[in-house]
Computed example of a mutant assay.
Amino acid sequence: MFSSFKGLGFPQTTQGGAAPKRGPRLWPVLLALMLGLPLPSWAVTCTNSNGNQPYPLTFTFPSPLVVDNSMDDGEVVASITITQGAAGGGGYSTCASDTRLWYEGIGAYTLVGRPVYPSSVEGIGIAIFNYSPPGGYFPQMSDRSGASWVVNSSALVRIDLVKTGPITGGSLSGPFAYSTLKFFDGTSFNHTVYQFSGSVPVVLKNPTCAVTTPDVVVNLDQARIGDFATVGTTLKEKDFKVSLACSGGTAGTKTEVDMSLADRTTPANVSQYLSLTSASTASGVALQIVRNGSAISFNPTVNKFKVQDVLPGNSTVDIPFKARYVRTGTITPGKVQGIAVFTMDYK
């Protein structure tokens, strides 16, 4: 810019008749004049119908959000795809000059197969995909400029919660991204804010189990009446087991396995004697189910017992029992049959 003034000046006379010298004698004056000129201002203001606050786009995830630390980094923990209208978006922003619309998450993103922004929970990041032009993952810039911007209620957006490392648990809450109107002077105006609906607890996944022996038949050996010396005498114990197949779970978690037994013939029975079915022809005897040397009391409402804690890596759990006869009175010989129903409870 200054080079266009090179050589400007006025001829000056010096003693001795020397030729007048030409030079940029007015540079300081020109600089002063130039510095004194008003420069154009790029500061632009915007308004909207939401009290000049960004329009909220709210996303609802399952609560609590159960996650598994055994997932690989980069895998999607949970995802939601909805329109901005369904997320509560609506309205418009108007500016005094053309702007560009930028889509950016909060914080510095890292590349985990795509740009992933941090969340409030260690090990979970957020990737935002915009289906509208220009399309793609945040961050991105609109493919046009303008002074008026509408929150497009039909525009689709996808929020991916991505595993980025060991997940510690906690809660997802608050804003995680903005669409921002940016001006030439570097100032900006938040157009929309992307946020979680309330607080979403993040719970580490516990091991899960399923019964692999839903029907267990125990055939006791025949007993002699004379061997039942007195009421309460027990005979002919036989081992059996209930088995579970367990899998999954995050390091540091466990699943408590509880169990209860009910008397199918007499559901209200809370004693240690399993009633005989109508198919039985004997009398004066009952059946008992024994665990760890003690007869189990029936009724799942009042007589639940703990089996064990299942940890990640426990693939098979066998629950050992014994079945036996017990004398309850004067014995009549015949067939003995009882049916117990077991219920598993996991927590």
Rank of each mutant, 00 (worst) to 15 (best):
R144Q: 08
P115R: 08
K236I: 03
D221Q: 08
G284L: 01
I167R: 04
N130G: 00
V203M: 04
A177K: 14
G74W: 14
V202M: 07
S197K: 11
F305C: 02
S41W: 02
V151M: 12
P214Q: 07
R224E: 13
L287C: 11
T213M: 02
G329S: 12
L156F: 12
Y109H: 13
D345T: 08
K182S: 13
N299L: 05
N314F: 08
V302W: 01
T45H: 11
F59N: 08
F59S: 07
G36M: 10
T301P: 01
M259E: 02
G9T: 02
F61M: 04
P20V: 06
S283P: 10
S271E: 00
G313Q: 12
G23E: 09
V310L: 06
L204V: 09
A210T: 13
S49T: 15
T265S: 06
V202S: 08
A323Q: 04
Q272M: 15
T110Y: 06
N130W: 02
I289F: 07
N190F: 10
W149P: 08
F196A: 06
G136S: 14
F228E: 01
Q12D: 04
G135R: 14
N130H: 05
S315F: 15
L30S: 11
F184P: 01
G334R: 04
A43Y: 08
G284E: 03
Q84L: 13
S188W: 07
S79G: 09
N130D: 13
G329R: 07
S171L: 01
R264G: 01
D68N: 11
S145A: 10
V317I: 15
Y55K: 11
T45K: 10
S280A: 13
